[in-house]
């Protein structure tokens, strides 16, 4: 592919970008749980975050980066927002658009965290951010109740890939 073609391709992707406008689904816990336990060989990186959580917002680009770094691997990033679902149009959608988030974003609409936090991980005390990396085929699973740097995230993923 010549350089002109690459530029043209890049340009067309750039122009096409708005059509990829991110959908933000509002889900309940059983649906999330179904996705967490799906018996596939895909490694899921699930990051629990919120627009109001400064360390979460800071680490988001590290998760976005995984999409390109591991484009050839069976890896899926899911960003689970714990913002209030009532803020979907006012806060979350504009945030996702402004940051051009490409990973899938869902809002977990469950008012009582006590009813589901343990089911994600008994060790999770409820502080954000929280990250779960899981591969149900290999039964590998690791969790972090803290902000992850790009280096830490890469290191955490290494045993999965």
């Amino acid at each position: 592919m010549g350089p002109t073609k690459v530029i043209l391709l890049g340009l067309s992707l750039l122009l096409a970008a708005p059509s990829f406008a991110q959908q933000v689904a509002v889900i309940k816990f059983p649906e999330l749980q179904k996705r967490l336990t799906r018996p596939t060989d895909t490694t899921y990186v699930i990051n629990f975050w919120a627009t109001w959580c400064a360390p979460c917002v800071k680490e988001l680009p590290n998760f976005e980066q995984l999409r390109t770094t591991y484009a050839n691997k069976k890896l899926k990033v899911l960003l689970v927002s714990l913002d209030y679902a009532s803020q979907l149009d006012k806060k979350i959608k504009p945030f996702v658009k402004q940051r051009s988030l490409k990973s899938e974003v869902v809002i977990l609409n469950e008012p009582d965290p006590n009813s589901w936090l343990d089911k994600v991980d008994p060790k999770w005390s409820g502080a954000l951010p929280f990250t779960l990396i899981v591969n149900n085929k290999t039964k590998k699973r690791v969790t972090f109740e803290k902000e992850l740097s790009a280096v830490e995230l890469k290191a955490a993923l290494q045993p999965f890939l």
Binding site: P113, A127, K146
Partner: peptide
């Protein structure tokens, strides 16, 4: 004991 979501310290 119960759990809640909150900001990390």
């Amino acid at each position: 004991s119960t759990k809640a979501v909150g900001c990390t310290i």
